[in-house]
Lab assay of single mutants.
Amino acid sequence: GNAVQEIMIPASKAGLVIGKGGETIKQLQERAGVKMVMIQDGPQNTGADKPLRITGDPYKVQQAKEMVLELIRD
């Protein structure tokens, strides 16, 4: 079955996860074999953390989460 996890991405790092024209998030999805969606909560909310929703095989979702956390670590 499918697992769904959401991680909060600091607004300052959201661009890093998505990448230029969505390149990075696309590569992450391909590498991890999961679906990732950045939940954009309207323009008034630009400074707030953005939830990144990861959907897929539970094991792969976990892997994907680690990859993203690695990416946004300072």
Rank of each mutant, 00 (worst) to 15 (best):
G1P: 04
G1R: 04
G1E: 09
G1N: 08
G1C: 05
N2T: 15
N2P: 11
A3P: 15
A3R: 15
A3G: 09
A3L: 15
A3C: 15
A3W: 15
A3N: 15
V4F: 15
V4H: 14
V4D: 09
V4W: 06
Q5G: 10
Q5V: 15
Q5N: 07
Q5S: 11
Q5T: 14
E6A: 06
E6D: 06
E6H: 07
E6L: 04
E6R: 05
I7E: 01
I7R: 00
M8V: 03
M8D: 04
I9T: 01
I9H: 00
I9L: 07
I9R: 00
I9Y: 00
I9K: 00
P10K: 03
P10F: 00
P10I: 00
P10R: 02
A11I: 07
A11D: 12
S12T: 13
S12W: 05
S12A: 14
K13W: 03
K13F: 04
K13A: 07
K13L: 06
K13S: 08
A14E: 12
A14P: 01
A14V: 12
G15D: 11
L16W: 08
L16E: 09
L16P: 02
L16N: 06
V17Y: 02
V17A: 02
V17K: 01
V17I: 09
I18V: 12
I18Q: 09
I18W: 08
I18R: 06
I18T: 14
G19A: 03
G19N: 03
G19Q: 03
G19Y: 01
G19E: 03
K20S: 10
K20L: 09
K20A: 14
K20V: 11
K20N: 12
K20W: 04
G21I: 03
G21S: 11
G21V: 04
G22N: 07
G22D: 07
G22E: 09
G22L: 05
E23N: 11
E23S: 15
E23F: 06
E23R: 15
E23A: 15
E23K: 15
T24G: 13
T24L: 06
T24I: 06
I25H: 03
I25K: 02
I25R: 03
I25W: 04
K26M: 06
K26A: 09
K26C: 04
Q27I: 12
Q27D: 13
Q27R: 12
L28E: 01
L28Y: 03
L28P: 01
Q29P: 01
Q29A: 12
Q29F: 01
E30Q: 10
E30N: 07
E30K: 12
R31F: 05
R31Y: 04
R31S: 13
R31M: 07
R31H: 14
A32V: 09
A32Y: 12
A32R: 02
G33F: 02
G33V: 01
G33T: 03
G33L: 03
G33I: 00
V34L: 02
V34Y: 00
V34N: 01
V34I: 02
K35Q: 14
K35Y: 03
K35E: 13
K35F: 03
M36C: 03
M36I: 09
M36T: 01
M36S: 02
M36P: 01
M36K: 01
M36G: 01
V37Y: 09
V37W: 09
V37T: 11
V37R: 12
M38C: 04
M38Y: 07
M38I: 10
M38S: 04
M38E: 04
M38N: 02
M38V: 13
I39C: 09
I39F: 15
I39Y: 07
I39W: 07
Q40H: 05
Q40P: 09
Q40F: 11
Q40D: 13
D41Q: 13
D41V: 11
D41N: 15
D41Y: 05
G42K: 15
G42T: 11
G42F: 08
G42A: 11
P43Q: 09
P43F: 08
P43Y: 13
Q44V: 08
Q44Y: 13
N45L: 05
N45V: 09
T46D: 09
T46L: 10
T46P: 12
T46E: 11
T46N: 08
T46Q: 12
T46M: 11
T46I: 09
G47H: 04
G47L: 08
D49I: 05
D49G: 07
D49H: 12
D49M: 06
D49Y: 12
D49Q: 07
D49W: 06
K50I: 08
K50Y: 14
K50C: 09
K50P: 04
K50N: 08
P51H: 11
P51N: 10
P51K: 11
P51E: 12
L52R: 00
L52M: 10
L52P: 00
R53I: 10
R53D: 01
R53A: 05
I54L: 08
I54V: 05
T55F: 09
T55E: 07
T55N: 05
T55C: 09
T55G: 03
T55R: 05
G56C: 00
G56E: 00
G56S: 00
D57N: 07
P58E: 13
P58Q: 08
P58I: 11
P58F: 07
P58W: 10
Y59F: 13
Y59M: 10
K60T: 03
K60M: 06
K60L: 08
K60G: 07
K60Y: 03
K60F: 03
V61E: 01
V61K: 00
Q62E: 14
Q62D: 13
Q63E: 13
Q63H: 08
Q63T: 10
A64G: 09
A64E: 01
A64Q: 01
A64R: 00
A64S: 04
K65H: 09
K65V: 10
K65Y: 06
E66V: 08
E66C: 06
E66I: 04
M67E: 07
M67K: 06
V68T: 05
V68C: 04
V68W: 00
L69T: 12
L69R: 14
L69Q: 13
L69C: 10
L69Y: 13
L69A: 12
L69W: 08
L69H: 08
E70W: 03
E70D: 15
E70R: 09
E70V: 03
L71T: 08
I72S: 03
I72G: 03
I72H: 02
I72C: 15
R73Q: 15
R73H: 14
R73I: 05
R73W: 11
R73S: 15
D74Q: 09
D74R: 07
